[in-house]
Structure formats: C-alpha cells, structure tokens
Design a protein around this nucleic acid. Structure first.
Length: 478
RNA sequence: CGGGAUGUAGCGCAGCUUGGUAGCGCGCCUCGUUCGGGACGAGGAGGCCGCAGGUUCGAAUCCUGUCAUCCCGACCA
C-alpha cells in the first residue's frame, strides 16, 4: 500500500493545486526543461515529438486543402510594422527590438516578429498583380516572440512555436470562407486528433485580433473549468491591403484591394492536452499524437526468452504502431509509473507466464484497465483499444465541460455560479463593450466567444437588461 | 507591472535565529541478489550555498543590490 501512496504523491494532487500539478507534469513527464533564458523553454525530445505529431497531421491537412508553406524573416523593420495602426498598437507593448548589429547601432530598429502579418503583406504587395495571382494560400511554421511578463510552460512563453497561415483573396466573401474553413479544420484537429472538445464561435470586438475585422476562435475547457483559447482565425477584410497598398487588376481591368485572412495554432495546444486529459498519475496523451502508443514492459527480463519475446513483439507491432520497448534494468513497477507519468496510451506486459500461455497483458492509461490478450489478436486489440481510448478521452472531457457549463439570466446568478466553481457561463449580451468591461471587472470572467450554435437564454442582456443581441460564453481564461 | 514566496549536489530539502568553511533523502556509477505496481545490500562519485558588492580575522549564515523561478492579480496565443 505504501507504494501506491508514493505513486500518488509523486506529483501534486490535481484537485489540491491545479497550477502546481500542471508544472509538475510538464517537467516530470520530460516535456520541457526550464531554459536559462527568461520565460523560454527547452523543448525536450518527448515534448517536441508531440509537437511534431501535431504538426505532421495538420500540415498534411493544409496541403490537402491547397495551402503552401513558405518561410519569411524573423525580423520586421519598424517602419513596416507601423503601417497598420491598430495592429502596431495591439502588439507594441510586447515586441522585442534589435537595436544593434555587432557594435553598430542600426539606423532603423528591427522587431523580432510577434506575428507576421506585416511581412506577408509586404510579400503580397510584391507578388500579387492580377486576379490570376489569387488566391494565395500561404502558411509558415516558425517561432514568434512576445515579451510576456508572466510566463507558463506552453501556455504563455516569450518564444513559442506555431503555424501562421496568411491568405490573400479576391473578395471579402472568399476571405470569410477561408477564415471559417480553417476554424473548422482547427476544431477537427482538436476533437478528432487531440480528443479535446471545443466551442466554435466569434470573438467580440473587444477580444478581436489587432487589425482584424472579425476573429473566430475555438475555446476548450480545461479540467479546472477555465477556458483555453486553442486556435484563432481572422478575417482582415481589405484593411491591411489598404495600409500596405496591395492591389490587383480584376477581370474588368479595375484595380482592387485584396482581402486577407490569417490563422494560427501553437504549442499552447500541448498545454491544452495536459490540462484536459491529465490525472494524478501524470500525463494522458491522445493516442493519435502520442509519440509512443504502446510501451512494452518485459517482466523478469533476466529470465530465458523474455527479452527475445519482447524484442520480437516490438518488431512485429512496429509495423502498425509507434512502439517502444524498455529494456532498462529498472523494476517493472518503476516502469509502469514512469510511462503513466508520460501518458503512454497502452502498456504491454510480457513475462514468463505470458510466454508460456502465448498471450500478453494490455493496460490502458485512461482507465487503468488490464486485459489478457492472445498473441495472435494483439494487432487487432491494440487498434481497437487506441480507438476506444481516444473516444473515451473525448467523452470524458466533454462530460467535464457539460458539468461545468451554466446559464445565467442576471448578474446575481452569474456571480453566484462563479462564486461556487469555475466554468463556462452562457448568458445573453446586448453587444456593448461597457457591459463586457463591467462583467470582467466584477467577475474576472471574459467573453470567450459568441458561439455559432446560439441559444436564447433570455431576451435581455445579463448585465444591463437591455434587449439582447447574442448568447455569449463567458469564463475565466488561461 | 503590482502583491507574496523561493534560490544550498541532477531533483527534493535541512543548516541561517546564536558567523568558524556543508549535510540528509532520492537519483547517478560499480558489483551481487532481485523483477506481474516506483526492489535490497555493499562500495563510490558529485557542491565558487543564484550572482555582485559590503561588514568581519572569518559569511551559506548578517547588510545592500541584482537576476531568475513559482504562486496570486492587471495584459496577451
């Protein structure tokens, strides 16, 4: 029993201190190492592998939908950054500046990209001349820098990895269609790959991206009831095109401004995976992006034939799954805990008894359930179990969200709900920023989005009582 | 950027009040016995006590400054 207690105490209890639990997992599962650079992370092989899997999946989807990858500089001349007024104002507080090259002071300072709208605009102004050049569906995988004051691994760091898509279109309708299409692709990624249910919707003007006409978002709920903005997609209309003078000649030989969209997801998603699925034994990874899907743990590996059996199983299963065999001389119990901490979806135990009975033991990470499986059915069972683990993780996360989603018709109700627990509140809103500001000040909850799936909670604004425009999801956010 | 806490071996900590040149647990290395939920024994390696000043014969310990990390708020993916 004492041993079990030690397992549980290896990391901070999730219900006791969620924030500490999170940072414990991040380091103990060997996802990251705290860098000597303030606010930055060393992404370790295991953490980076998760990102690579997300990246590989999504990059494939982008290519299937006609997008192309490019790479633009990490520096932006100050004059370029300043061309779009709202945009600079939005990012100015958090940009890092390069002022010197060697010992020479630069005549114009360079900003380290916090996002690359301005560079893409500059590019598009060079290469778009005719409607025949449109659309341009460009994407880049890179890192960006935002001089954040307080940082948390994956959720907010000074430098982070992401993809930023920047597309150019003939019309506003085309740009809007792209914006929505990508939002659905993001939701697909979260739900069908990461097992994270999301709410799709539009940001209010207050929460809109600097320089955008409209911002759409997918919002996920973490285990503790807080919201995580997990991907955003922006329709810029022709605002940037006018600021950067990006014009093309249309079919009628008329000069027109292009219409643009941009969209991004980042390594923040990894933080989302941790906080959505993790438990007191550590990380729980969605099978579709888990760097290792099956960990083989030999039992009594010094005994004749055990390691041979384990190795040949590894070779056999590697044909269909991401498999790892741990032949280190740690005890089996140690390995069990270790790979639970790392969130490996399935553990396969193979020992003398199994070899004798021509079987293996499969243990699933999400439920802890163990099953004895005949050797000749392994591939089939593993495939089924991985599917079922994904489905179960998604359902569990969704059930958590539903249990922590409430409706409020008045501010009294609103506050009473948040006083009891953290969660989403669905409430009607009149559309004024005054009410949004008031709610934030009074409750610290912000508007997460105006969901595509609207409901009529009541007829009047939860805050001011005037006629309501939209149902809004409110919540505390990361 | 405000409020709080913490920096001592790879990790977690003690030592600091009452200054005298550093210790414990885990981990690591070697050997042996073990192995179906974090094994045991024996031996061994490892530290400019975050950094910079100051006080002192002498500083991990006292003083000043600084940097970093964590937590809670304000700002953001």
């Amino acid at each position: 029993m004492a041993k079990n207690v030690q397992n549980v105490e290896a990391i901070t209890n999730r219900e006791v201190d969620f924030a500490k639990w999170y940072t414990d997992i991040v380091t103990k599962a060997e996802l990251v190492d705290y860098s000597s650079v303030r606010g930055c992370l060393n992404l370790l092989p295991y953490g980076y592998a998760i990102w690579e899997n997300i990246q590989r999946t999504f990059d494939g989807w982008l290519k299937e939908t006609g997008h192309e990858n490019v790479y633009l500089p990490m520096f932006i001349p100050e004059s370029l950054l300043q061309k779009e007024k709202d945009h600079v104002e939005g990012f100015a507080p958090e940009v890092a500046w390069v002022t010197h090259g060697g010992s020479e002071e630069l005549t114009e300072r360079l900003c380290v990209r916090p996002t690359s709208e301005t560079l893409f605009c500059d590019l598009y102004s060079h290469i778009i001349h005719s409607y025949r050049d449109l659309p341009k569906l460009y994407n880049q995988w890179c890192s960006v820098v935002r001089w954040e004051k307080t940082t948390r691994p994956f959720l907010r760091t000074v430098e982070f990895l992401w993809q930023e898509g920047h597309t150019a279109h003939e019309t506003g309708e085309d740009a809007e269609a792209e914006t929505i299409k990508i939002l659905h692709l993001y939701a697909d990624l979260c739900e069908n790959v990461l097992a994270m249910p999301v709410i799709k919707g539009q940001k209010t003007d207050k929460e809109r991206f600097a320089g955008a006409e409209r911002t759409y978002t997918i919002e996920a709920m973490m285990h503790d009831g807080k919201a995580l903005q997990s991907g955003t997609s922006h329709n810029f209309g022709d605002g940037f095109a006018r600021a950067f003078d990006i014009q093309y000649t249309d079919r009628n030989n008329q000069l027109q401004y292009i219409h643009q969209a941009s969209w991004g997801i980042s390594t923040r998603l990894i933080g989302g995976i941790i906080m959505t699925h993790g438990d007191d034994n550590g990380l729980v990874l969605p099978p579709r992006i888990a760097p290792t899907q099956v960990i083989i743990v030999p039992i009594a590996q010094h005994k004749e034939g055990v390691l041979d059996a384990a190795r040949s199983l590894k070779t056999r299963l590697a044909a269909g799954f991401r498999v790892k065999l741990d032949e280190s001389d740690k005890t089996p119990g140690w390995k069990f805990s270790e790979y639970e901490m790392k969130g490996v979806p399935l553990r396969l135990e193979i020992g003398p008894k199994d070899i004798e009975s021509n079987q293996a033991v499969l243990a699933r990470r999400d439920t802890g359930e163990k099953k004895i499986v005949p050797m000749d059915q392994l591939e089939e069972k593993i495939a089924d179990l991985l599917e079922d683990i994904h489905r179960n993780m998604y359902e569990k996360a969704k059930a958590n969200r539903e249990a922590k989603t409430f409706t409020a018709k008045t501010m009294e109700e609103f506050e009473a709900i948040l006083a009891k627990q953290t969660g989403f509140i669905k409430a009607m809103w009149c559309g004024s920023q005054e009410c949004e500001d008031f709610i934030k000040e009074k409750t610290t909850a912000t508007s997460r989005c105006m969901p595509f799936e609207q409901e009529q909670i009541s007829d009047t604004c939860v805050c001011c009582g005037k006629p309501a425009q939209k149902m809004v999801y409110w919540g505390k956010a990361y």
